[in-house]
């Protein structure tokens, strides 16, 4: 076999030409208009003051940032992360088997099942949330069913509880977990799973040693798509949680539209965004460190 020591394919460096830059221009413009400009505006606001009417006064101050780190808001941020983390975990636990199952189906059925995952997007988010209210309210569908079947005698208090918030969050974000995991699972060659079994890995170890690592990009994308927006979510806490437990999204929204304190809202937003960039960068660096 020594005769067969052929070399591995070479990885050549590529350089982007003018055409590539031209092709990138619309994206760059898009990023500038919808990411850089608003973010810059946010940063500027965050160092400003407000006047009596809530108008932004361009008067430099660190005050807003000092207030962000008040224990009140740190506690809210902590709670938001907690809710988002719980939502993410539940989404993985429910979404992974669903995505895996769909990915393993034959073609026409697979597309139909995927469509079912996406159908809720065809109606407005608010309408779907109101549908959940109709299900969970004390004279609602679920309580009606439970009482009819004799499981409970008095209606359960489901709506306007933290449980309802988590149900709402999981419902809203589950497709964002299923779709990327499906993307990874669908690409996973079944022979790899068979190879793991063949080499003595039972279902659990095949899952942990082969399936999880190979679908990890999908899981990671799902986590990013669920965890980050879930932290900032405010509509579900208002509608399904009865606005009882404020999450960071509620506080920020509140600063802009109720308390008329845009600079403070902006400061909260900036800190929140920085926190994510930092977390993402750290996670990314660790990932690169492990793959290198």
């Amino acid at each position: 076999m020594h005769a067969l020591a052929d070399t591995a394919p070479a990885h050549g460096g590529r350089r982007a030409g003018v055409v590539a830059w031209l092709l990138l221009a619309p994206l760059a413009l898009w990023l500038l208009l919808f990411v850089v400009v608003p973010m810059a505006g946010l940063v500027v606001y965050s160092f400003c003051q407000r006047d009596d009417l809530g108008r932004v006064v361009y008067d430099f101050s660190w005050e807003n940032y000092a207030r962000v780190f008040d224990p009140i808001y740190l506690k809210i941020l902590g709670r938001s992360i907690g809710y988002a983390a719980l939502t993410t975990v539940i989404c993985i636990v429910i979404g992974y088997p669903v995505a895996w199952y769909i990915a393993r189906q034959r073609s026409p059925l697979r597309e139909r099942l995927l469509l079912l995952v996406m159908i809720p997007f065809w109606t407005s988010f608010l309408i779907r949330t109101y549908a959940w209210i109709a299900i969970l309210k004390s004279e609602g569908l679920l309580n009606g069913l439970l009482q009819f079947s004799g499981v409970v005698t008095a209606p359960l208090s489901l709506l306007y509880t933290p449980t309802a918030v988590v149900i709402g969050l999981v419902y809203a974000y589950l497709p964002f977990m299923i779709l990327p995991i499906y993307g990874s699972a669908e690409k996973l060659d079944n022979a790899l799973v068979e190879a793991a079994h063949d080499l003595g890995a039972g279902p659990i170890r095949a899952f942990s040693h082969v399936i999880i690592p190979l679908t990890w990009p999908g899981i990671a994308a799902g986590i990013m798509l669920v965890f980050v927006p879930a932290i900032g979510m405010f509509a579900i806490t208002d509608l399904m949680g009865g606005a009882q437990v404020p999450l960071i999204g509620n506080v920020i929204q509140n600063q802009f539209f109720r308390a008329r304190n845009a600079p403070f809202g902006a400061a909260l937003g900036v800190v929140f965004t920085l926190l994510f960039i930092l977390t993402y960068a750290l996670a990314h660096r660790r990932r690169r460190a492990t793959t290198a």
Binding site: A191, L192, H197
Partner: peptide, 20 residues
């Protein structure tokens, strides 16, 4: 008997090497 309990191993047509 499940594949992972058999004392046989296979070389796959696609090799099925674990890319990670």
């Amino acid at each position: 008997l499940a594949p992972y309990r058999r004392n046989v191993n296979q070389v796959f047509q696609s090799y099925a090497l674990f890319p990670h």
